[in-house]
Design a protein around this nucleic acid. Sequence first.
DNA 1: ACCTGAACACCGTTCAAGT
DNA 2: ACCTGAACACCGTTCAAGT
Lengths: 191, 191
Amino acid sequence: MDSQTGTSSRDKILDVATKIAQAHGYGGLNLRTLAEEVGIKAASLYHHFPSKADLAAAVAKRYWEDAAAGLEVLSSRTQDPADRLRRFPGTFRKSLENDNRICLCSFMTAEFDDLPDPVKKEVETFTDVNVAWLSKTLVAAGIVSTKDAKKRAHAIFAAVAGAQLMARGRSDIKLFDALIKNYQAAGLLPL
Amino acid sequence: MDSQTGTSSRDKILDVATKIAQAHGYGGLNLRTLAEEVGIKAASLYHHFPSKADLAAAVAKRYWEDAAAGLEVLSSRTQDPADRLRRFPGTFRKSLENDNRICLCSFMTAEFDDLPDPVKKEVETFTDVNVAWLSKTLVAAGIVSTKDAKKRAHAIFAAVAGAQLMARGRSDIKLFDALIKNYQAAGLLPL
DNA sequence: ACCTGAACACCGTTCAAGT
DNA sequence: ACCTGAACACCGTTCAAGT
């Protein structure tokens, strides 16, 4: 850790790799390009991570950890649980705002067959974190029973991920907003 | 066209390429592997398609044409429009049944940045075809006004695509069914 | 410890030659 | 017409060797 900038080489690699993978996926994560953007040679990446698989697993792990932290901040800052649910899609909206990227884990879920096992594990945890947060928030908002919470949570998560994917295909963030509004109007999310 | 089997070399290439692209995407569609599965050498593919971009565009074009034809069959065989809507997710379920693959165009939408323009165009048409069919069916079922039909259609399409992606990540077709049921319970699709 | 040149395996593609 | 071996320029990945 560099005490001046607060960013180690390892962190810089993870930052750049995350952005590339959100736009091009695991297969499209090109180590030469990644290294160039970091300012080193491709071979030097192997001093920080033993393989592309380990690098991608570290990227996906940090990705769900950041997501979990973000959701906890949302919970602590927003009193009304229904209001938290209304703000949930905003976390997915940010990726689209950031150069029309999508959720790292949505992309990697499409690529699931080609993912090394350690990467698969972290990608699955991202879903688990989101579903768990949605479940407890749905219950707190009194929208569903504890029994039905997990399935409804998964449905919301899948629908929001799908909306993000559609909006990317059209490079149209307004489409994302329109789809979320429609989910609300249909009753999937609180109005 | 081979009058005996009804399948030309070109069609066989398209068949195999479609399956590979549904599992690995455009980037993961490897011409040497494709050729091997077809039973020819990679160089021979260029006698049927001028480039990988043209091949992928032909794959995506045939994909939406088949989808459009399938939806028309569904319309003609199912009298009740609400019933047609209930059966719509079944067209996405089939991909999962077929070796846990996903919609070709969902995968390619994730890869949008890396797609040649002619492929992008066909991928967009797939969405258009589905949204148009859902729109007219929603109106016929009296669920939404003509004015609101397109946006609701897009919301259903996005949610079903998202459900398919989630089910792939868990290799769990029951998860797909559970998500669709939840969309119905929430009011996004007719019960 | 951190880095790199150079090799390796593989990619889309081309082409001369074969049937 | 359709096919192929061989080659091309390229790229992701790895490793032996440098500092």
